[in-house]
Amino acid sequence: MSHGHEDHSSHIKEYWWVFAALMFFTGLTVAVWGWFDFGRPGFSAGDCVVGLLIACVKASLVGLIFMHLREERGLIYKILVFTFYFFAALMFLCLFALSDPIRPVFGVNL
């Protein structure tokens, strides 16, 4: 990073704000576990979605601010976009294979 020294001191404040936000979201995640129930009582798809959404928000905060992705060069983004494409391919095609809508043959997922 090619900023001067003054820039950094202004960043420090920002880092602490992000820290506070992350703490808040951690608390929220635990709260989702303990108090709120989306959909069915206990664990359910609703909890799952909300829990993961919060995790995504936290992850973006860490990525954008702490890992400086906000001010990073396009090249890094390209690498990351590739990676997430392949990761998504791995996870969702596996899931697709597991719960294929057209499955008349054996009826059982092995």
Partner: peptide, 24 residues
């Protein structure tokens, strides 16, 4: 390179995958 990541299950036709994923 891009495509090579999303064709792998053609090695697995014999595992009894469903018709949808096989078609893909």
């Amino acid at each position: 390179g891009f495509f090579s990541f999303i064709v792998w299950a053609h090695h697995m036709y014999m595992t009894g995958m469903g018709a949808g994923v096989t078609t893909f």
